[in-house]
Simulated assay, not measured.
Amino acid sequence: MPASSIRWPLRPRGRLTRPRRTRLALSLGAAATAMGLLGACGGGGSHPANVVATGQAPSYYPADYSQVIEASKREGGTLAIYSNTDQENWAPIFRDFRRKYPWITKISANNLDSDEVFQRVLSEQATNGSPADVLVSNAAQGWAEFAAKKGTVMEYRSPEADKLPDFATLLPNVYTMSVDPLGIAYNSSMLPKEPTGIQDLADMVAGDQGKYRNKITTRDVDGAFGFTVSHAFTTARPGSWASLQRILPLARPETSSGTQLEKIISGEYYAGFFISAAPAYPMIANSGGLLKLAFPKDGTVVLPRGIGINAKAPHPATAKLFTDFVLSEEGQRALAEGGLTSYREGVESREDRRTYQELVRQVGAGNLVFVKYTHVADDQVKAFVSRWNGLLGQ
């Protein structure tokens, strides 16, 4: 199947240069470096280490799961992941997965754009096959289109499925790895106060348009991620267009949360909205209080990060072990330590672990906007993008 069959239908308009995200292979050495960086972010030293049962599956797994473990031992200790997840987020997960299954010594994880994960696999499958074992992305539209194609996602029911909430299954054979909220990131030296929501931010910037012109950033809706989160918010909160009509004329779009966060820290932007908490948490910890993140009380978007196994995975047993691990309580603790948001009951919220339960307590379940993994028709996409971009300042 050609990659063009899932290509995002809209192309950037040329306002900004679309940066290519750095491709990162996390070998053992690179993972160790990432863990050192993560440790420098603070938090972990004063807390007990995550407890992992080496070589043992949980007691509620089926008896024949031992066959999956033994099959993994014969696969050469290798796992390849295609994802849009940063190294700081992966580091504790890889650390504890290798502790649990010590024969797995080579884990590679590239860092692609959210929808490029699927384009890459489709392109490779159309030629000599893809080396990817596991796919991880929060591109809801991309997952919906990819999983609908025959022979793309392996049929696999995780033994963890019965222990998880309904939203843990996003699509057949596609599970929720984490539920990452999006918030308003801001430079605390540039804003007079913490914005409590999108309407509050609109009130703040509209009161002094000269000061805030080109000082607010949002995600480019010409890309899959930006469209997904912005469309989900306005669909759930149609009244928010009144606030967006005041914010967007002062805003500039970017294609990467990392770029947005760096520019907010530098003061090039004062604030940005619909910014993922996953890359923000490590940068907040290192900013000395300069970078802060607020979750809107008038609607916090929650974007599930999907995980599935390539139907033609070169290392299928190891891919199953990894999928089950990140859904387990052990894996969810490691995941939360790396800045992703765990949703499994039993994972303790603390300074270095972010959980869905903590988010609910902070903003209220009724104020959360969950992104659904459903396909949006092309005409609806174009209408939304046209309306959004028509409001942006030039």
Rank of each mutant, 00 (worst) to 15 (best):
E351K: 13
E330Y: 05
R95G: 06
T235N: 12
E254H: 12
P253N: 10
A202K: 00
Q141N: 12
W103M: 08
L250H: 02
D379L: 04
D115H: 11
I104A: 03
G390Y: 08
V117C: 11
V121Q: 09
S130Y: 10
R18T: 15
G76C: 07
Y175H: 10
R361V: 04
H315K: 08
A317E: 02
E358N: 14
L10P: 01
A280P: 04
G299L: 02
T217H: 05
V134T: 03
V221A: 10
L37D: 15
V52N: 00
R305W: 09
P249C: 07
S188D: 14
T341H: 02
E254Q: 13
A319E: 01
K73D: 10
Q245I: 01
T259C: 05
P2R: 13
P62F: 07
P181I: 04
Q260Y: 00
W241M: 06
G393M: 04
V51R: 14
V302K: 03
S123G: 14
S72K: 03
E262N: 13
T17W: 13
K382R: 15
D208A: 11
I216G: 00
V301K: 00
L112W: 08
A365M: 10
P9N: 02
L261Y: 05
G76A: 06
S276P: 03
L340F: 09
R11Y: 09
N286V: 11
D166F: 12
Q125R: 14
G393A: 11
W241R: 03
A71E: 13
A285N: 08
K312Q: 15
H315Q: 11
G364L: 03
A377Y: 07
A334I: 09
T341Q: 06
R120P: 08
N110H: 11
I198H: 05
A40D: 10
K211D: 02
Y61A: 05
R20F: 09
K320S: 01
R95I: 11
F325R: 00
G288A: 02
R213V: 11
T218F: 09
R387A: 14
T323C: 10
G226K: 00
R15T: 11
A168L: 07
V117F: 07
N173Q: 12
G77A: 09
L28H: 14
Y281Q: 11
M190G: 13
K297R: 14
G267M: 06
N187G: 06
I81P: 01
N173Y: 12
D220H: 10
V326C: 04
R15C: 05
S342E: 05
Q87P: 14
I275Y: 03
R333E: 14
T105V: 14
K73H: 14
S178K: 00
L327A: 04
I309Y: 01
Y343A: 03
L368T: 09
D352F: 03
R344T: 04
E145R: 14
Q245L: 04
R219S: 12
G338V: 01
N110R: 10
L291P: 00
A236R: 09
S130H: 08
